[in-house]
Design a protein around this nucleic acid. Structure first.
Length: 257
DNA sequence: ATGGCGCAGCCACTGCGA
Protein backbone atom coordinates (compact mmCIF):
# COMPACT_ATOMS: atom_id res chain seq x y z
CA UNK A 1 0.00 0.00 0.00
CA UNK A 2 1.40 3.37 -1.05
CA UNK A 3 -0.25 6.57 0.19
CA UNK A 4 0.85 10.11 -0.68
CA UNK A 5 -0.11 13.72 -0.08
CA UNK A 6 0.45 16.53 -2.57
CA UNK A 7 -0.57 20.16 -2.77
CA UNK A 8 -0.80 20.46 -6.56
CA UNK A 9 -1.46 24.24 -6.81
CA UNK A 10 -4.32 23.93 -9.36
CA UNK A 11 -5.23 20.51 -10.70
CA UNK A 12 -6.23 22.00 -14.05
CA UNK A 13 -2.85 23.64 -14.52
CA UNK A 14 -1.06 20.56 -13.17
CA UNK A 15 -3.06 17.74 -14.78
CA UNK A 16 -0.41 16.44 -17.20
CA UNK A 17 2.29 16.78 -14.56
CA UNK A 18 0.14 14.84 -12.07
CA UNK A 19 -0.73 12.12 -14.60
CA UNK A 20 2.96 11.59 -15.29
CA UNK A 21 3.66 11.28 -11.58
CA UNK A 22 0.81 8.77 -11.05
CA UNK A 23 2.13 6.60 -13.85
CA UNK A 24 5.64 6.79 -12.44
CA UNK A 25 4.93 6.23 -8.74
CA UNK A 26 1.71 4.20 -8.90
CA UNK A 27 0.30 5.21 -5.48
CA UNK A 28 -2.79 3.41 -4.13
CA UNK A 29 -4.20 6.57 -2.54
CA UNK A 30 -3.33 10.26 -2.81
CA UNK A 31 -4.45 13.26 -0.79
CA UNK A 32 -4.62 16.31 -3.06
CA UNK A 33 -4.85 19.91 -1.91
CA UNK A 34 -5.39 23.23 -3.70
CA UNK A 35 -7.40 21.80 -6.57
CA UNK A 36 -8.63 25.33 -7.38
CA UNK A 37 -11.67 23.93 -9.14
CA UNK A 38 -15.26 22.96 -8.31
CA UNK A 39 -16.32 19.39 -7.61
CA UNK A 40 -18.22 19.47 -10.93
CA UNK A 41 -15.12 20.58 -12.83
CA UNK A 42 -12.92 17.82 -11.38
CA UNK A 43 -11.17 15.91 -14.22
CA UNK A 44 -12.73 12.55 -13.30
CA UNK A 45 -12.41 11.13 -16.82
CA UNK A 46 -8.70 11.84 -17.24
CA UNK A 47 -7.94 10.31 -13.85
CA UNK A 48 -10.20 7.31 -14.44
CA UNK A 49 -8.29 6.67 -17.66
CA UNK A 50 -5.16 6.60 -15.50
CA UNK A 51 -6.79 4.04 -13.20
CA UNK A 52 -8.04 6.27 -10.39
CA UNK A 53 -11.31 7.24 -8.75
CA UNK A 54 -11.73 10.36 -6.65
CA UNK A 55 -13.59 11.54 -3.56
CA UNK A 56 -13.73 15.29 -4.10
CA UNK A 57 -14.63 18.44 -2.17
CA UNK A 58 -13.95 21.37 -4.47
CA UNK A 59 -14.78 25.05 -4.77
CA UNK A 60 -14.26 27.67 -7.43
CA UNK A 61 -10.79 29.25 -7.75
CA UNK A 62 -9.42 28.45 -4.31
CA UNK A 63 -8.75 25.57 -1.92
CA UNK A 64 -10.37 22.24 -2.83
CA UNK A 65 -9.26 18.78 -1.67
CA UNK A 66 -9.62 15.20 -2.88
CA UNK A 67 -8.67 11.64 -2.06
CA UNK A 68 -7.63 9.70 -5.13
CA UNK A 69 -7.83 5.90 -4.91
CA UNK A 70 -7.04 3.03 -7.20
CA UNK A 71 -9.80 0.89 -5.65
CA UNK A 72 -13.41 2.04 -5.26
CA UNK A 73 -13.79 4.24 -2.18
CA UNK A 74 -16.68 5.37 -0.02
CA UNK A 75 -16.97 9.11 0.57
CA UNK A 76 -17.13 9.40 4.37
CA UNK A 77 -17.45 13.18 4.80
CA UNK A 78 -16.70 16.57 3.31
CA UNK A 79 -15.86 19.69 5.27
CA UNK A 80 -14.97 20.42 8.87
CA UNK A 81 -17.92 21.23 11.16
CA UNK A 82 -17.81 24.86 12.31
CA UNK A 83 -15.14 25.81 9.77
CA UNK A 84 -17.40 26.25 6.75
CA UNK A 85 -16.24 29.84 6.25
CA UNK A 86 -12.70 28.62 5.60
CA UNK A 87 -13.74 26.93 2.35
CA UNK A 88 -13.35 23.38 1.00
CA UNK A 89 -10.44 22.03 3.03
CA UNK A 90 -11.22 18.53 4.32
CA UNK A 91 -12.46 15.33 2.70
CA UNK A 92 -12.42 11.79 4.08
CA UNK A 93 -12.77 8.53 2.16
CA UNK A 94 -12.69 4.84 3.10
CA UNK A 95 -10.97 2.35 0.87
CA UNK A 96 -10.78 -1.26 2.03
CA UNK A 97 -9.68 -1.26 5.65
CA UNK A 98 -8.08 2.17 5.30
CA UNK A 99 -9.58 5.56 6.00
CA UNK A 100 -7.78 8.40 4.25
CA UNK A 101 -8.40 12.12 4.77
CA UNK A 102 -6.99 15.07 2.83
CA UNK A 103 -6.69 18.43 4.59
CA UNK A 104 -5.60 21.91 3.54
CA UNK A 105 -5.06 24.02 6.64
CA UNK A 106 -5.56 27.79 6.09
CA UNK A 107 -2.37 29.71 5.40
CA UNK A 108 -3.08 32.48 7.91
CA UNK A 109 -1.52 35.20 5.73
CA UNK A 110 0.08 37.28 8.54
CA UNK A 111 0.14 37.23 12.33
CA UNK A 112 -2.24 40.20 12.49
CA UNK A 113 -4.61 39.10 9.71
CA UNK A 114 -8.05 37.72 10.70
CA UNK A 115 -7.12 34.55 8.77
CA UNK A 116 -4.47 33.78 11.38
CA UNK A 117 -7.14 33.27 14.05
CA UNK A 118 -9.16 31.32 11.50
CA UNK A 119 -6.14 29.06 11.00
CA UNK A 120 -5.79 28.37 14.74
CA UNK A 121 -9.54 27.78 14.98
CA UNK A 122 -9.38 25.37 12.04
CA UNK A 123 -6.57 23.37 13.67
CA UNK A 124 -8.49 23.21 16.97
CA UNK A 125 -11.63 22.02 15.20
CA UNK A 126 -9.60 19.49 13.24
CA UNK A 127 -8.30 18.08 16.53
CA UNK A 128 -11.84 17.80 17.90
CA UNK A 129 -13.05 16.22 14.65
CA UNK A 130 -10.33 13.55 14.76
CA UNK A 131 -10.95 12.98 18.47
CA UNK A 132 -14.68 12.45 18.04
CA UNK A 133 -15.04 10.85 14.60
CA UNK A 134 -11.89 8.86 13.80
CA UNK A 135 -11.36 5.29 14.97
CA UNK A 136 -7.62 5.40 15.67
CA UNK A 137 -7.59 1.66 16.33
CA UNK A 138 -7.93 1.20 12.56
CA UNK A 139 -5.54 2.18 9.76
CA UNK A 140 -6.05 5.91 9.24
CA UNK A 141 -4.01 8.51 7.39
CA UNK A 142 -4.56 12.26 7.61
CA UNK A 143 -2.46 13.71 4.82
CA UNK A 144 -2.21 17.31 3.83
CA UNK A 145 -0.70 20.75 3.75
CA UNK A 146 -0.72 21.83 7.40
CA UNK A 147 0.99 25.17 6.78
CA UNK A 148 2.99 24.77 10.00
CA UNK A 149 6.73 24.08 10.35
CA UNK A 150 6.36 21.91 13.44
CA UNK A 151 9.88 22.24 14.80
CA UNK A 152 13.06 24.17 14.00
CA UNK A 153 14.22 21.12 12.04
CA UNK A 154 11.36 21.71 9.59
CA UNK A 155 12.58 25.13 8.49
CA UNK A 156 15.53 26.14 6.29
CA UNK A 157 16.47 28.96 8.64
CA UNK A 158 15.04 28.53 12.15
CA UNK A 159 16.64 31.73 13.41
CA UNK A 160 15.52 34.01 10.59
CA UNK A 161 11.99 32.57 10.79
CA UNK A 162 11.74 32.56 14.59
CA UNK A 163 8.13 33.39 15.55
CA UNK A 164 7.30 34.17 11.91
CA UNK A 165 4.08 32.83 10.47
CA UNK A 166 4.18 29.00 10.13
CA UNK A 167 6.70 28.96 12.99
CA UNK A 168 4.82 30.52 15.92
CA UNK A 169 4.19 28.80 19.23
CA UNK A 170 0.37 28.84 18.86
CA UNK A 171 0.63 27.10 15.47
CA UNK A 172 3.13 24.54 16.76
CA UNK A 173 1.09 23.84 19.89
CA UNK A 174 -2.06 23.41 17.78
CA UNK A 175 -0.25 20.74 15.77
CA UNK A 176 0.94 19.16 19.04
CA UNK A 177 -2.69 19.00 20.17
CA UNK A 178 -3.71 17.30 16.94
CA UNK A 179 -0.96 14.71 17.45
CA UNK A 180 -2.23 14.37 21.01
CA UNK A 181 -5.21 12.46 19.65
CA UNK A 182 -2.81 9.57 19.05
CA UNK A 183 -1.67 10.28 15.51
CA UNK A 184 2.02 10.37 14.62
CA UNK A 185 3.99 12.28 11.99
CA UNK A 186 5.25 9.43 9.78
CA UNK A 187 8.32 11.27 8.53
CA UNK A 188 9.51 11.93 12.06
CA UNK A 189 8.65 8.40 13.20
CA UNK A 190 10.70 6.74 10.48
CA UNK A 191 13.37 9.41 10.08
CA UNK A 192 13.53 11.44 13.29
CA UNK A 193 16.51 13.57 12.36
CA UNK A 194 16.46 13.91 8.58
CA UNK A 195 16.41 17.50 7.40
CA UNK A 196 13.83 17.34 4.67
CA UNK A 197 11.44 19.87 3.15
CA UNK A 198 8.22 19.53 1.16
CA UNK A 199 7.71 23.13 -0.04
CA UNK A 200 10.00 25.66 -1.69
CA UNK A 201 8.98 29.16 -2.76
CA UNK A 202 8.80 29.65 -6.52
CA UNK A 203 10.72 32.89 -6.07
CA UNK A 204 14.40 33.58 -5.68
CA UNK A 205 15.77 30.14 -6.57
CA UNK A 206 14.59 28.68 -3.26
CA UNK A 207 14.51 25.11 -4.55
CA UNK A 208 18.00 25.39 -5.96
CA UNK A 209 19.24 26.69 -2.62
CA UNK A 210 17.11 24.15 -0.72
CA UNK A 211 15.48 26.96 1.23
CA UNK A 212 12.26 25.14 2.03
CA UNK A 213 9.86 24.15 4.75
CA UNK A 214 8.40 20.80 5.79
CA UNK A 215 4.71 21.61 6.01
CA UNK A 216 3.15 18.67 4.14
CA UNK A 217 2.60 15.77 6.50
CA UNK A 218 1.26 12.25 6.61
CA UNK A 219 -0.24 11.70 10.07
CA UNK A 220 -0.94 8.07 10.95
CA UNK A 221 -2.95 6.11 13.50
CA UNK A 222 -0.97 3.47 15.44
CA UNK A 223 -2.02 0.57 13.15
CA UNK A 224 -1.06 2.59 10.08
CA UNK A 225 2.26 3.59 11.65
CA UNK A 226 2.98 -0.05 12.51
CA UNK A 227 2.71 -1.00 8.84
CA UNK A 228 4.79 1.88 7.50
CA UNK A 229 8.07 0.76 5.96
CA UNK A 230 9.27 3.91 4.23
CA UNK A 231 8.45 7.59 3.87
CA UNK A 232 10.06 10.12 1.58
CA UNK A 233 9.65 13.46 -0.13
CA UNK A 234 9.42 12.96 -3.88
CA UNK A 235 11.78 15.85 -4.54
CA UNK A 236 12.24 14.95 -8.21
CA UNK A 237 8.66 16.06 -8.82
CA UNK A 238 9.38 19.57 -7.58
CA UNK A 239 11.50 19.93 -10.73
CA UNK A 240 10.29 21.09 -14.11
CA UNK A 241 9.41 18.22 -16.47
CA UNK A 242 10.01 19.38 -20.03
CA UNK A 243 7.49 22.15 -20.56
CA UNK A 244 5.49 21.15 -17.49
CA UNK A 245 5.74 23.40 -14.46
CA UNK A 246 5.82 21.80 -11.01
CA UNK A 247 3.75 22.78 -7.99
CA UNK A 248 5.68 24.64 -5.31
CA UNK A 249 5.07 21.55 -3.12
CA UNK A 250 6.61 18.11 -3.67
CA UNK A 251 4.60 14.92 -3.01
CA UNK A 252 5.20 13.18 0.32
CA UNK A 253 4.93 9.42 -0.08
CA UNK A 254 4.71 6.50 2.35
CA UNK A 255 4.78 2.75 1.80
CA UNK A 256 3.00 0.25 4.03
CA UNK A 257 3.54 -3.49 4.32
C1' DA B 1 22.09 19.22 -12.83
C1' DT B 2 18.95 22.87 -11.86
C1' DG B 3 16.68 27.13 -11.92
C1' DG B 4 15.74 32.15 -11.81
C1' DC B 5 7.23 33.11 -9.22
C1' DG B 6 2.70 30.81 -10.73
C1' DC B 7 -2.34 30.53 -10.84
C1' DA B 8 -7.35 32.25 -11.25
C1' DG B 9 -10.34 35.71 -12.79
C1' DC B 10 -16.49 39.46 -15.11
C1' DC B 11 -8.35 39.36 -16.74
C1' DA B 12 -3.28 42.27 -18.98
C1' DC B 13 -3.41 43.85 -13.03
C1' DT B 14 -4.69 42.17 -8.59
C1' DG B 15 -5.17 38.87 -4.84
C1' DC B 16 -3.35 34.93 -3.00
C1' DG B 17 -0.01 31.49 -1.81
C1' DA B 18 3.76 30.34 2.33
Amino acid sequence: MRIATWNVNSLNARLDFVLGWLEDRRPDAVCFQELKLTTEAFPYAALEAAGYRASVYGQKSWNGVAVLTREPAELVSTGLPGAEAAGARLVTARVGEWTVASVYVPNGKTLVHPDFELKLDFLARLRSHVESTVDRSRPYILGGDFNVAHTDRDSFDPDATRDAIFHTEPERRALDALLGTGLVDLQRELEPDTRVFSWWDYRGGSFHKNEGLRIDLLLASPPARARATKVWVDRDYRKKKGELTPSDHAPVVADFG
